[in-house]
Nucleic acid binder design. Sequence first.
DNA 1: GCACAACCGGACACTGTGTCCACTTGACTA
DNA 2: TAGTCAAGTGGACACAGTGTCCGGTTGTGC
Lengths: 217, 217
Amino acid sequence: MTRIGDVTPRTDLPNDTAARPRERTDLLTDASTRPRERADAARNREKVLAAAERLFAERRPVTMEEIARAAGVGRGTLYRRYPDPASIALALLDEHERGLQERLLRGDPPLGPGAPPAERLSAFYDAMTELLERHGHLVLGAETGASRFAAGAYGFWRAHVRSLVVAAGVPGPDALADALLAPLGPEVYDLQRRNGVPREEVASALARIARAVLAPS
Amino acid sequence: MTRIGDVTPRTDLPNDTAARPRERTDLLTDASTRPRERADAARNREKVLAAAERLFAERRPVTMEEIARAAGVGRGTLYRRYPDPASIALALLDEHERGLQERLLRGDPPLGPGAPPAERLSAFYDAMTELLERHGHLVLGAETGASRFAAGAYGFWRAHVRSLVVAAGVPGPDALADALLAPLGPEVYDLQRRNGVPREEVASALARIARAVLAPS
DNA sequence: GCACAACCGGACACTGTGTCCACTTGACTA
DNA sequence: TAGTCAAGTGGACACAGTGTCCGGTTGTGC
């Protein structure tokens, strides 16, 4: 199956992913050949993103209509770029996830290559809880429920965790990868924080799982 | 906090829970004092439940309108009993979950009391995957996303798992309980099955986690 | 067989969706 | 600097689903 080396930080498009989700030709044409974005379009994209960031931070769910209104933009304009609110949250989230993905592939241990699998998984958990802490509202907006698995990022996280399971010599990596990723679902993290469990405690519970499952017996 | 002994299999109403979610007085009046259900009402409830069972099995999401139409019943009638499709799925799911809860509390080991915590958790995972296998469509209809935690059953599962963590002497039971329950989210299980992982493999991956985390070091 | 409470179900007002298209704007050319 | 026209804009529209309301109907207990 998929090996970690096969996976690029962003499996779909080089950039502007969610902004042009319907133009499948983007998969073939690179940024230099397609006409550059017009000034009014860029201006509106900024307005939309800023308004959406604000709305996601204050409540859920956020509707396309609300975003359009808050951004002072027509509904047609919004739909031109984004098919739904989740894809807008995803666009906002994109660079944060990308940074972490970069660190996983080429950063220093224990997050990056070099450390034992149990330590790498533990560090991954820690980094993910930090990302959830900082941008949880966006993750909840973008990757809720089953749509979480459809988002490009999940495939990356999964390939990473799976490779760690394999490296640790633990059998059944396919089933384990999803199981080990499940506690990072935004709803779960949100529940724990709401129940008064601090981020550090969540991270250390996950570290315990990581070490128990992947540590050499 | 909550100890396992405090929790009854169904934390809310004695029966007919979802059927009368708005009549808060039911919390005080017992079944014998309230007027018994009329024949036509009972007939319609059967029709609604049967239609909903069928609809949930074949696709999602299921709307109130569809259920009403399929059951040959007016929308007002449907809303009289159930506030939304999830509560209908919950009503259908209720007895299955209740049976498992009973076995956890008073059944034979390793599911019931008596076995070591790691084995009990492992058996719980196994039973839950079987429930998901059999009634996954209902669980997906009833306990998707964050609403899963709001459902009464989640509190029960959580109290059970937490007590096992405590019994095993593992620190941080509050954070661990939710983390250990996360892989049983219906979306996660559904994803794994769709990816071709058989139920047995999911169960054995979870068993591995259970033993690694709770086994005496 | 009567009275009345429980129940029924369609109509209504409302929110949000996604598409469409006549109009406007701005980038490029001559 | 003006002209051209594709790209971009935004409001109107048709639609789907929600949740409530209330006049009419049906059972149950007396």
